[in-house]
Structure formats: C-alpha cells, structure tokens
Simulated assay, not measured.
Amino acid sequence: MPIIRCDNLRYRYPESEALIFNDVHFQFQRPGFHALFGHSGAGKTTLARMIAGEISGYEGRITFDGIQRIFYTHNMERLPNWASAGDILRSTTPTAFLELLDRLIAIFGLQSCLQSRFGRLSLGQKNRINLTRYLVQPFDALVLDESLANVDETTRGVIISEIKSIFPQRCFIYISHNMLEVSRYCDEIVILRSAPKTPQVVSVCGLNETGAGTAMASKPLEAILLEIAHAT
C-alpha cells in the first residue's frame, strides 16, 4: 500500500468558482525523498498543505499508511529576530535529539552563525536554521516547500544527500523550481499541471542520487529532464 495516496481530489479556493484541482490522483509508494514540481501557480503549495492537514474542504481522499505525524515547512517562516540562532535551536529541540542537532549543525554549516541574532542572518542561513528545527522533531513525513531557497547549489546537494542518509525510513516531499536538482535527488516526482490539462498530474521517476557533487551529463538524467519538460 502506498504511504501517501491522493484520490479524485477536487478543490477551489474560497470565493473562487474555478477549480485549481480537478480529479487529481497520485501516490508516493515508499519512504524516501520525493518531489512536487510544476510551474508557479500550479498549486504545489496548496496541495502540500492539503497533504499536511493545513487545508480542508476539498473533495476526494488523502490516505496514509504508517504516517501519523506530518509537518509542513516553507522558506517564508520567520523566527524571533532578537533571539540567537543557537538559542532558537536548543530551545526547540527535544532532549533525545540534541546529538542529532549537533550533527545537523555541522552538516548544514551553521556553526559560525549560532551566536548571531536570527534577524541578522542571511536568507539562506535563516532557511537552514528553520529546516534544522523541523528535522530534530519526531515526524514521519516532512514537506519542504522551497526550504533550501537562497542556499548555494553545492550546500543544497550536501544537505539533501545527508537528509536521505540520516532519515532513510522517513518521507520527504520537496518543492523546488530547480528541475535538475529534482531530477537528480528525488525518487518519485509528481508534476502538477494547470487544471484544464488532462491528466492534471504526471508522475516521473527521478535518479534518486545519494551523493552530492557536480551534476554530470548522462542519458538517464537527460531523459528525465526531457520527460519533465514535456509533462509541464
């Protein structure tokens, strides 16, 4: 049974007559690092929030197998500007996960900014701090909505690879506009298209790479990129 399954989803924004989703159905088969991909305005964030339980009032069903705690994080979350990054992380981390926190701080390259006030950090640093505080919570699935925006490509690759290594039995749903990144690192890629298109969702298998590094041209990667481009 798929760990996340969406069947016949229909949804329109409040006070809107137009459907944003019309008979959407897809599934994520297994734990891993997956993706929601599509043009701006396709409804990626809305669908992610529906999966996370933050939006209701839709028709259809979203079912889970083995997933009880699902969180949604995005790149616009802001924490108290006056608090230090280190205090924010320590105060929100359960005692059982303090060792994991230290490991993530090192992997994410956050040591140098722990004493700085959150408001003085760059956007990339803020996003890494925010993502870290979610990763040290007990969760079964985590939606990352542009959570690595403003982080350089090399660091993003390292972070994604380490997340996949540390949490092999968790489910991640990654939202990004970077087609190459999604193609390389994600397993199941769900492509959202505008509501008039049928089907509105197309699923593509990514390379699901486990190591960071410079992307090398290859026929499998080129085939995935072409398939995504045609689908969108």
Rank of each mutant, 00 (worst) to 15 (best):
A229C: 11
L36Y: 15
R133M: 14
Y134K: 14
Q125R: 01
S165K: 13
R61V: 10
A96T: 03
V202Q: 09
H74T: 00
G60V: 02
P31I: 15
I175T: 08
G66F: 13
Q111D: 13
D65S: 13
R69F: 08
E181C: 05
T198A: 02
Y72E: 00
D87C: 12
V158L: 06
E209F: 04
R78T: 13
G86W: 07
V158W: 01
S194H: 14
T210D: 15
V204D: 04
G119P: 09
E15Q: 14
A217H: 01
R184N: 11
E54Q: 07
A42Q: 03
P196I: 01
T46M: 03
G41Q: 12
P94I: 04
S161C: 07
Q29C: 11
G43Y: 00
A52I: 09
H74Y: 11
L100Q: 12
T95D: 15
L225V: 03
T46A: 07
I105M: 09
R117E: 10
E162C: 00
Q115S: 11
Y134A: 07
T63Q: 08
I3E: 00
D65M: 15
D187Y: 02
R49M: 04
S161V: 04
A217G: 15
T210I: 05
N127H: 12
Y72M: 00
I175C: 10
A215V: 13
H230I: 14
L98F: 13
F167S: 05
A52M: 08
V151N: 03
S194P: 10
G206M: 12
L36G: 05
I224A: 05
L221Q: 01
L100R: 08
G41F: 06
G38P: 03
M76R: 15
I189L: 11
E222I: 03
S165Y: 07
D7L: 12
S116I: 14
F118M: 09
N208Q: 11
